[in-house]
Design a binder for these strands. Structure first.
Lengths: 194, 194
DNA sequence: CTTGTTCTTGAATGGTCACTCATGTATTTT
DNA sequence: AAAATACATGAGTGACCATTCAAGAACAAG
């Protein structure tokens, strides 16, 4: 009976995610999204009840589901070890140094822009941090078992530090995208472990 | 001859700084500043040509000049060593855990919200990061000389890492103000050195 | 083909934004 | 006291914001 929808909601979310990522939540207007997707305001609001904020929260979830795993790469595998951990950090650095990577991480941006006033957004960020910490803990535990890192390293504690380090990397990289500095940070973070 | 100004521009900047700090640049309206200072739009614009953005850049400079030295405390002294460095991190953590400290650092927020699109703002942030790095380098060098940290520690490199760590601490603290996590990060950052 | 249901469209709403400007005011010099 | 000067006031500007809604359109079931 009903008329079928003429657009793919996930495609809309992909575009919305990119805009929120590049410009931030407040700086992205509904008109931006209308232009980016070709979907008119009425359709947007009927497909995403709750309007802009819903679009944003769904974009965050989509980022978590699509972009984050791609960035994590093999670090997400249960057998990941020191090289995968290092690979993740190297990937972050090269992202920050490329023109397309200057936007940093949507979840870090969200932590700063929205976490204090939007607890649902903060929860998505916390989930991301927890997942990252868990991947890193596993990798460190594996690396310790194989002797790639010193036995004195506490996987859980070091993982917490490494999570903070990569968030900090993103902040520093956004203000000062200098490869020398960013690589020095990563190098020093890893000299501790070996 | 002229009629004297009835308000103190620095007092206006103090209020503007607080608003930008707590709410961010975009989320702070001129009307917010008018309400906070009692100074009407016309006077605001004549005292700060360039409008909102000038007010913001001046607020950043004022933050750098007034708030940052207070947070740095004794870490800024030439004789600072390991305990001053640790004191700085402990201060960050207790700030993040207090209700008034939830806003984090204006310069970190600026790095995320404005650095990509406003190079003048980014420059202020870079200046702050450089100053922080220099204080930490000095403290680490002093600490190494007195044997408080291992001789194998590279002051310049470790300082870059510690700068990133404290930026990361701010991001993590904003999404997840959990003392256990934040203290674990600082503890692990310092186990490397001793 | 008719009817029912959902979708699309885009103009319209009321609010807020950063910013300006004409008018009036306070102070100092002459 | 009068003139000159810079400041204070706050209504006003046009632009943009998120959101709504009435009207038309497309499809499926009967």
């Amino acid at each position: 009976m009903p008329r079928p929808r003429e657009f793919e909601p996930d495609a809309v979310l992909d575009q919305a995610m990119l805009r929120f990522w590049w410009q931030g939540y407040r700086a992205t207007s509904i008109e931006d999204l209308v232009k980016a997707t070709g979907v008119k305001p009425g359709s947007l609001y009927s497909a995403f009840p709750g309007g802009k904020r819903t679009l944003f929260l769904r974009s965050l979830e989509r980022y978590s589901k699509l972009v984050v795993p791609q960035k994590l790469g093999e670090l997400a595998a249960p057998g990941a070890s020191l090289s995968e951990l290092r690979g993740y950090f190297d990937g972050l650095v090269s992202d920050l140094l490329s023109p397309e990577g200057r936007q940093g991480c949507l979840l870090v941006n969200t932590a700063i822009e929205n976490a204090a006033e939007d607890d649902e957004a903060a929860a998505v960020v916390r989930g991301h941090l927890a997942r990252l910490e868990q991947c890193m803990t596993t990798a460190l535990r594996n690396a310790r078992d194989t002797g790639e890192v010193r036995a004195s390293v506490d996987p859980a504690g070091s993982a917490k530090l490494l999570v903070a380090t990569c968030q900090g990397l993103m902040v520093v990289g956004k203000a000062n995208p200098d490869g020398t500095v960013l690589r020095a940070i990563v190098d020093n973070a890893f000299t501790v472990l070996a």
